[in-house]
Each structure stands twice: as C-alpha cells, then as structure tokens.
Design a protein around this nucleic acid. Structure first.
Lengths: 109, 109
DNA sequence: GATATAGTTCGAAATGTATCGAACCGAAGC
DNA sequence: GCTTCGGTTCGATACATTTCGAACTATATC
C-alpha cells in the first residue's frame, strides 16, 4: 500500500503522567544536560539538530532526544526533513515549578 | 594493634565539586527519592535508619545511602551503633537553589 | 564473654544504559 | 529517477546499576 506512507510522529507524554524521578533520570546524563542547556539558552526558539553541537554519532544523538522526549522535557516536530526541538517550558513550569530555573543556574564544573 | 580500631567514617564531598547531573542521577531512583522525601518531611531532624521504612534488604539500603552521600545530598554521622542521616539543606540551597523546593512539590503519581 | 543490633563489604546475578556502525526511510533538490 | 540530507531503527558490545545473601565489624547490653 504505497499510497499510505509512514510519516514519523513522536509521542509526547502528558506531564501529569511523568514522575519526577523520570525527569531526574533523563537529566542524569551530561550529554542530555548539555542539550537542555542549549535549548534553555535558545530562549524559546525551536532548534534544528545541526544547531546543537554534540560529539556523538547520530544514532546516539537520536537516542538521547528520545529519552528527553519520553521524560516530557522536549517537544519535537518535523519540518520538512529536519526536526525542530524546543523545551516544554510552560508545562514544565506548571508541573515542576523551579526545575528550569534550577537547570539554568546549577552549572559549574 | 587491637587498641587502634577502625571507626567508620564517611566521605562527604564539597558541594562545589558535585556537578548537577550527579545530583540528578542520585535522585533518579524511586527508592532514593523516597528517602530524600522522608528527610525533607523530617524538617531538619536527623533520622536513624529504622525511622525510614524501605522494603529492601539492608545491603541495598546501605548502597542507596552511599549514592546519596556521594552526590552531596545527605550527611551521615555515627551515633553509637546507628547512623543518623540528615539533608545538607543549607549547602544545597546555596549550590543548587530551588532544588529542595522542587523535591518538595514535584511528587504526584 | 555472649548476644543482639545497626550497618558495611563482598561477590554474583539480573537488568538497564550508552554507544556505535550499518541499514533504512522520507523529503528536497538535481 | 538518483542523490543528498537529517533522522530513525536494529543489532551488538561494553559498561553501570540494582539487588540480594552471606560474612563481617563495631557498639551496646546482658
């Protein structure tokens, strides 16, 4: 059935379904922390993959984005061939008030 | 040299040495999250082991406390045969402002 | 000294996670 | 149609984490 083509869609959990320890788990990897950091500094602008520098393979990169998505931290939408990523700011601030601010400050060393 | 006995001492890292992702990693386990929760509710009082109910073996319990200690979250001191545990509140609020408040609110489900 | 209590340490087993290359897929452009 | 680009999926491998029982240590109490 070639006329019914797969268009990749992503699952974004409702934040009320996400326990805090899952968020912590997602943020426990330095690489993922770096991604979130970049998104934070983008001030709400959606970032394409090539705007986030990472010294890992694209398979690994894909995996990390998947983890962040499953933890409710990021929102992904396709735009042509590239996928745009943004933080779920408003929802996160509602469900886990203080989290984003914490991520903004806590980085030293 | 029986007159020079090992008295168990614990290592507590300086919080400035602890990266945020290590804290996240420590809090990514539901069991450890529960421990921290109990300590939060204890309002600064030091808790003995038997005051924190956990349905795990004592070996595992010991392990979890070790992880929390290494992440700079808790302070442990021996008192006779039992060890008293407390949150490193002031230091945590200084190094990671908002963290403890986040832990206090974010628990649903 | 003997026993009980609180906790640590040591394997070992099971499970989970990070990482990659290779194969793949869809969209865009030639 | 073919190629390139951005990204996913599939093993496979290496490493880390969780968990436990058993053996151990130190303190306290009998």
């Amino acid at each position: 059935m070639a006329w019914l083509r797969d268009v990749k869609t992503y699952h974004h959990p409702a934040l009320r379904e996400v326990p805090l320890h899952s968020v912590m788990q997602a943020l426990s990897d330095p690489c993922r922390m770096a991604i979130v950091h970049e998104l934070l500094q983008a001030k709400g602008r959606k970032l394409a993959g090539n705007e986030i520098r990472l010294s890992i393979s694209k398979a690994t990169r894909s995996h990390h984005f998947e983890v962040l998505r499953a933890a409710g931290l990021i929102f992904t939408e396709m735009d042509g061939t590239k996928c745009m990523t943004s933080l779920r700011r408003a929802e996160l601030n509602q469900r886990f008030p203080g989290l984003l601010k914490l991520l903004g400050t806590g980085e030293r060393r």
